[in-house]
Simulated assay, not measured.
Amino acid sequence: MDEQDYYWPGIQSREATDWAALLPADDMTGWLTPDPSARTPLIEPLAAHPD
């Protein structure tokens, strides 16, 4: 397993994963924010709220 591979129970493979089901609905906002100091996005699906 390299540094970009993660183990999530119940996920068999990248190809078999329904990635859209892991993210908030299209009409939600507030769950994806930039972190300029780390130069990465912060992904917090539980912080989603209606747009």
Rank of each mutant, 00 (worst) to 15 (best):
I43Y: 09
A48F: 00
G10F: 07
A20W: 04
G10T: 07
P36N: 08
G10K: 08
T29P: 00
E3R: 13
W19D: 01
A25W: 01
W19V: 12
W31R: 02
Y6M: 12
T40K: 15
P41W: 15
G30Y: 05
R14Y: 10
D51Y: 02
D27C: 05
L23G: 02
T17R: 09
W8G: 03
L22C: 12
L32H: 03
L42D: 07
D51I: 04
A16W: 03
R39W: 05
E15S: 13
T40F: 02
L42M: 10
A47K: 09
P36L: 10
D2W: 08
P36G: 02
S37E: 15
Q12L: 11
G10R: 10
Q12E: 14
D5H: 12
T33K: 15
G30S: 07
L42S: 11
I11F: 11
P50L: 06
D5R: 10
Q4Y: 12
D26C: 04
L42N: 11
E15P: 00
P34S: 10
D35W: 06
E15C: 04
G30F: 05
D5F: 09
D51M: 03
D35M: 10
I43N: 03
Q4G: 09
W31Q: 03
E44N: 13
A20G: 05
P36W: 06
A21T: 05
L23R: 06
M28G: 02
D27Y: 05
G10Q: 10
W31G: 01
M1N: 07
G30N: 07
L32T: 00
E3D: 12
D51C: 05
A25T: 09
P41E: 03
D18W: 04
D26R: 10
I43G: 01
P24R: 06
D27E: 10
I11T: 13
Y6I: 15
D18N: 15
